[in-house]
């Protein structure tokens, strides 16, 4: 992945060179007696779409604030494209879409975007950005009269204005209806296809599953799993193999690598395993098993297993 990074010709190439989009190294952050982030190590490569998934209070927002330079870590290092977060912000390399606030009600949509763009040394045009966020039709409307979904798209448009290499979204679709959410994500996806790195925090499993290349699962300020949705599902509790086996030799089956448990119900057997292939192969070649079924645990189960909480829980 890192080999694709283009190096600028001549100047300052060491600065961006093969730097990760985000690099967190042993990051800690406490607020009073609350240890919100407890040693997070994370490397996000340019071009990745990463979901930062975890229940509320897991430390997602604190971590994001540190990546954005809004909060400083008590210990550890945070780098964005090989530089301190504030330096990356000043260069328009990072932008963020926050959940609420951050808009002036008495400005129009177009003015808000224009103003944002004027602050950077490098920016896209207002028209282009409004089009990409799908709000060109409300350009002249006052921000205060826009719906929640429209305001969220406006925040996205503002974030696009500096043509950032990294966009960070903190629970971006909270409060949107299903259609709004889908439209919002298709805009983000289309945009990410142009080479942007995207990190989004969410506690919606489906969102993480559908829109991210990689899911980083956090709990109590720590990363508990990191991988593709499929890897995380597998890591949590593996799969269940179910089959009908006449005269099963239980001890032989238990000896198959990866088997974690057996349940026998008459002739039917349920095997919990981290290596469903090995179990299936054993059952189909060494026994007279038939009606074999393999079920993967859903992300929902993985989430609960790994975070020890309900997906929607507080």
């Amino acid at each position: 992945m890192t080999t694709e990074v283009s190096v600028a010709t001549g100047h300052e190439s060491g600065e961006s060179g093969s730097a990760a989009a985000i690099r967190l190294d042993g990051v800690h952050r406490s607020f009073g007696s609350v240890h919100a982030v407890r040693g997070i190590d994370l490397r996000v490569e340019p071009g990745e779409i990463v979901a930062f998934l975890g229940p509320n209070g897991a430390g997602k927002t604190t971590t994001i604030d540190m990546v954005l330079g809004l909060t400083r870590p008590d210990a550890g290092e945070v780098e964005v494209f090989g530089m301190a977060p504030r330096r990356a912000i000043e260069r328009g390399l990072v932008s963020a879409v926050m959940q609420t606030g951050g808009l002036l009600k008495d400005l129009t949509v177009a003015e808000t975007v224009e103003l944002t763009g004027s602050l950077f040394s490098h920016s896209r045009t207002v028209g282009e950005v409004l089009d990409r966020a799908g709000i060109a039709d409300i350009a002249k409307q006052r921000v205060g009269t826009c719906s929640g979904g429209q305001q969220q798209r406006l925040r996205f448009a503002m974030a696009l204005m500096s043509d950032p290499a990294l966009i960070i979204l903190d629970e971006p679709t909270t409060g949107m209806d299903v259609t709004g959410r889908r439209d919002f994500w298709s805009a983000i996806r289309a945009d990410a296809a142009r080479g942007r790195t995207v990190l989004f925090a969410t506690h919606y499993l489906e969102e993480a599953d559908q829109y991210a290349d990689r899911i980083v699962l956090v709990r109590d300020g720590e990363i508990v799993a990191d991988g593709t949705a499929a890897q995380i599902k597998a890591r949590s509790a593996g799969r269940t193999v179910r089959a009908t086996v006449p005269s099963l030799d239980e001890s032989e089956l238990r000896a198959v690598p990866g088997v974690q448990g057996l349940e026998l119900r008459g002739e039917s057997v349920l095997v919990h395993t981290t290596d469903s292939d090995a179990v299936a192969r054993h059952l189909l070649t060494r026994t007279g098993a038939h009606d074999l079924e393999i079920t993967a645990h859903g992300l929902e189960e993985a989430f609960i297993a790994l975070t020890g909480r309900d997906a929607e829980g507080a």
């Binding site: 990074v5 600028a8 961006s16 000043e90 260069r91 040394s121 950032p164 290499a165």
Partner: peptide
């Protein structure tokens, strides 16, 4: 993961800080 070509990459080193 999205494949990146040099054309659509954003080059971090080319960015500058605005004056004033």
């Amino acid at each position: 993961m999205t494949t990146l070509t040099p054309e659509n990459r954003i080059d971090a080193a080319s960015r500058t800080v605005p004056p004033r």
